[in-house]
Write a protein that binds this DNA or RNA. Structure first.
Lengths: 182, 182
DNA sequence: ACGAATTTATATCGGAACGATATATGCTCG
DNA sequence: CGAGCATATATCGTTCCGATATAAATTCGT
């Protein structure tokens, strides 16, 4: 699923600017689900407008820069649904934290432990954001509750595991040396 | 953390070819931690060799194409440790499945349910691969056990949540319509 | 009160990464 | 005996990211 398709999806919930779409990735229900940079979002919206899948409207603001608000066209809505029905790809994770843990024997124990603290803090932040999204009266649809609940379950389980097992990081590997020579 | 750095990390466990590195992302401990395509791995290894961070060795094989086996140099090892100590970025997730659930109201219920079945199957596969990695006598280091256990905890929690709450998908949203005008 | 930093807002450019494709070889299965 | 699959590397066009530029207003510290 490319960025253009994701933008179409977000716009099914109502019109938005590029900046607001980026905020949705960081704060709301989509935190931990998808992410994209400004460098992808703005060109994506421009191309979608060229293809007639969204329409742009310039909105003048007082006390803030003007913004370009995009709204879905019927063709855009149809395109999004078609791409969803066509199938989905497996989830992709890129966890620098897990990488750091796998290679924890190569770094000072204090560094590894600080990475755990850092990751716990990020996880708590993400949980808090999901709680806010869960309370939001605009998120009462069962499928939204499901997606939020799934994110919560995974984060919670990861947090509990880290708290219970963080003592494993920093332990030297006691290799039994089966042959006994050494 | 770019692909070059990840390749350096994998090579701290021993020499490997580009093809074998790709397999590590799919089968082993690194499943669900990181991923990269051949189109990134091969150029990355070429550049690392140019920089003197790895050395390449051509290995002739009978009944198979020759392979280029790469091994870490001391400079490569130092570079990897330095980049790990320099700090890590937050985890990134790209879940087309969660996207599909968020927009489940736009697709046929049978499609949404089949996506859940598909995702459950993928999760079970991933859990099985982690179990194999956990049993591997080469994975007895506590930090490896920690990384594998963390992955297991998250996958397990997600699976249990999906099984317990999948009935939420397909329920029509009963909007109370506070104003009453429709 | 005044400059600094932050927030809101869009655009672009170079480089990194992906996905598809090409090439080559041998094995397995029907 | 041909089709398809596993092993193995390489490359190319497209997409995407990260950094940077621009701009206007608000907030914050001193």
């Amino acid at each position: 699923m490319d960025i253009k398709t994701v933008c179409l999806g977000l716009l099914t919930f109502g019109e938005a600017s590029g900046y607001e779409i980026k905020k949705l990735f960081e704060d709301g229900t989509f935190n931990g689900v998808f992410d994209a940079s400004f460098g992808s979002i703005y060109p994506a919206l421009t191309r979608l407008a060229e293809e007639g899948l969204v329409i742009a409207r310039e909105e003048e603001q007082h006390g803030r820069p003007d913004k370009k608000v995009y709204a879905l066209t019927p063709a855009g809505h149809a395109r999004f649904v078609a791409s969803l029905v066509a199938g989905i790809q497996p989830d992709r994770v890129r966890s620098e934290f897990s990488m750091a843990m796998i290679f924890a024997h190569l770094l000072p124990e204090a560094t590894a432990q600080s990475y755990i603290d850092q990751h716990l803090a990020e996880t708590r932040d993400a949980l808090r954001r999901l709680d806010v999204a869960d309370q939001d009266p605009g998120s009462q649809m069962p499928n939204l509750k499901f997606a939020i609940g799934l994110g919560r379950a995974r984060l919670q389980a990861g947090m509990e595991f880290m708290e219970r097992h963080r003592h494993m990081i920093g332990l030297a590997a006691v290799a039994p040396a089966p042959g006994g020579q050494g």
